[in-house]
């Protein structure tokens, strides 16, 4: 599947400051019986957004957040820890997010996000604190330059694994790279049986 290309985005942030936001919070396991990757946005952070009767919670940080204008999710440290479910980035993307920013993003979640066009940006702790303290800030994430700026002020560098970055900028499915390696894979199999 071709990736939706990502180069630069300016949008407002939704801040979920809690540390260790695990993928069970991002999408509870009861929504994982699906065989599709579509339409999971309604399940994103479901138990944070809705009460036991399915009514929106008054206390939800998602209230009043327009997914069209708040495409950047800022999370506390160790965002996306826990289960390897790719349903987590699928749900966040379907909800409307294109970028997740934290000081510290869990490995499997990061890998899954990159493969789906959700940009996982790890920033230094000072920038992270600044973002956590300013919910709704207008943030620009530039993947080409690998820089993030807040409310037009200051610029901080971030780094995305170069191959994943190239795939995102060009909208290229990384499976193509593996398929192009087929002669080497066959040769490996011939050597190792």
């Amino acid at each position: 599947m071709p990736l939706e290309p990502f180069s630069k985005l300016t949008s407002r942030t939704l801040v979920l400051a809690q540390e260790n936001i695990d993928t069970d919070q991002i999408i509870p396991a009861r929504f994982l019986t699906t065989t599709s990757r579509e339409g999971l946005g309604k399940a994103a952070f479901y138990d944070w957004r809705y009460d036991e009767n399915g009514r929106p919670k008054n206390s939800s940080l998602f209230n009043g957040v327009d997914p069209a204008t708040h495409q950047i999710l800022v999370g506390g440290p160790n965002f996306g820890c826990g289960s390897s479910r790719e349903h987590a980035p699928w749900a966040l993307l379907d909800f409307g997010f294109r970028v997740v920013i934290s000081s510290d993003i869990a490995d499997i979640f990061k890998s899954n996000s990159l493969k789906n066009g959700l940009l996982p940006v790890s920033v230094d702790e000072q920038t992270h604190r600044q973002l956590l303290a300013a919910p709704g800030a207008l943030v620009t994430v530039d993947l080409e330059a690998e820089r993030v700026s807040i409310d037009g002020a200051g610029e901080t560098a971030f780094r995305i694994e170069p191959f994943a970055r190239r795939c995102l900028l060009d909208g290229v499915d990384p499976l193509g790279r593996l398929l192009s390696q087929m002669p080497a894979i066959e040769e490996y199999e011939a050597r190792h049986g």
């Binding site: 790719e86 499976l175 593996l178 398929l179 087929m182």
Partner: peptide
């Protein structure tokens, strides 16, 4: 552990 996209990668290659 891997995600579902990578499950596809391993199935294919």
């Amino acid at each position: 552990g891997i995600g579902t996209t990578e499950v596809g990668h391993v199935l294919a290659t």
